[in-house]
C-alpha cells in the first residue's frame, strides 16, 4: 500500500496520459474510419477490404512493436507515445471503418428514396437523413469497440509508454504487496471502460425514447 501511496503522483500522470491517448486515438480513428466507410460506399473497395482484414487480424502488440521497432529502420522514428498512437489508430480505423460500413448498409433504403423524391441532392441526403441514422445504428458497436480498446492501451507499456500499466509494472518491482497494485491498475482501466459503457447506455436510451427504435418505426 505504501508503494501505491508513494507512487500516486506518477499514477495520476499515467492516468492522464492514458486518458488523452485514448481520446486522441478515438477521435482520429473514428473520423478516418467514417471517411473510409463513406468513400467505400457503392464501390468495390478492395484496398479497404485488405486493410481492414490485415489490421483486424493482427494482434495489437505486433502492430505496436512494428511501429516502435521496425519503422525507425525506415527513417520514421515516432518515439514511444507516437508509435503507440499510430499503432492504435491503424487498428482502430480498421474496426471503425467496418462498423460504419455495416451501419451505412443498415440504413433503411426507403428513407433515401423518400429524400430523393423530395429533390435532396446526395450530400444533403447524407448529412440530413443518412448520417443521423448511422449515428444511432453505430452507437453500440462503436462504444463496445472503444470499451475494449481502453484495455488494449495497457499494451503500450511494452514500448515504454508511461501509461498506467507501465507505472504499475515499475511499482511492482519495488513492492511487497503486488495484489493492491494490480487491483488498482485493473480498477483504473475498468473505470475508464465503464465510463464509455455508461455514456453509451445513457445516449442510446435517450435516443430510443426520443426517436423510437434505431431501425425505424415503419
Amino acid at each position: 500500500m505504501d508503494v501505491l501511496l508513494r507512487q500516486f503522483p506518477r499514477f495520476l500522470d499515467a492516468i492522464w496520459l492514458t486518458l488523452w491517448m485514448f481520446a486522441v486515438i478515438t477521435v482520429i480513428a473514428t473520423l478516418l474510419g467514417l471517411a473510409l466507410a463513406l468513400w467505400a460506399e457503392g464501390r468495390r473497395a478492395r484496398g479497404l477490404d485488405l486493410y481492414t482484414w490485415v489490421f483486424r487480424g493482427l494482434p495489437e502488440l505486433v502492430v505496436l512493436l512494428f511501429c516502435y521497432l521496425a519503422l525507425p529502420y525506415a527513417g520514421i522514428d515516432l518515439g514511444s507515445i507516437g508509435s503507440a498512437i499510430l499503432a492504435f489508430v491503424l487498428v482502430g480505423t480498421a474496426f471503425h471503418a467496418e462498423i460504419f460500413r455495416a451501419s451505412l448498409r443498415a440504413v433503411d433504403p426507403r428513407l433515401t428514396e423518400a429524400a430523393r423524391s423530395l429533390g435532396m441532392p446526395p450530400g444533403l441526403r447524407l448529412r440530413r437523413v443518412v448520417l443521423p441514422q448511422v449515428a444511432r445504428i453505430a452507437l453500440t458497436p462503436w462504444a463496445t469497440f472503444l470499451a475494449g480498446n481502453v484495455k488494449m492501451l495497457s499494451l503500450a507499456s511494452a514500448v515504454s509508454v508511461g501509461e498506467v500499466m507501465m507505472v504499475t509494472r515499475q511499482s511492482l518491482a519495488i513492492s511487497q504487496d503486488p495484489l493492491t497494485l494490480i487491483l488498482f491498475a485493473g480498477a483504473v482501466y475498468a473505470a475508464i471502460a465503464s465510463l464509455v459503457m455508461i455514456a453509451e447506455t445513457l445516449i442510446g436510451g435517450w435516443m430510443t425514447r426520443r426517436y423510437g427504435p434505431a431501425t425505424g418505426g415503419t
Binding site: R110, E113, A114, R116, S117, G119, P121, P132, R136, T218
Partner: peptide, 23 residues
C-alpha cells in the same frame, strides 16, 4: 441524379410505408 432533382420537386411522391425521417 443531380440534374433530375428539379423535376422531382415538381412531382412529389407519397409511399406505402410513409418513409418519414424518424429523427
Amino acid at each position: 441524379e443531380r440534374e433530375l432533382l428539379p423535376y422531382r420537386t415538381e412531382i412529389a411522391m407519397v409511399f406505402q410505408s410513409f418513409n418519414l425521417f424518424p429523427h
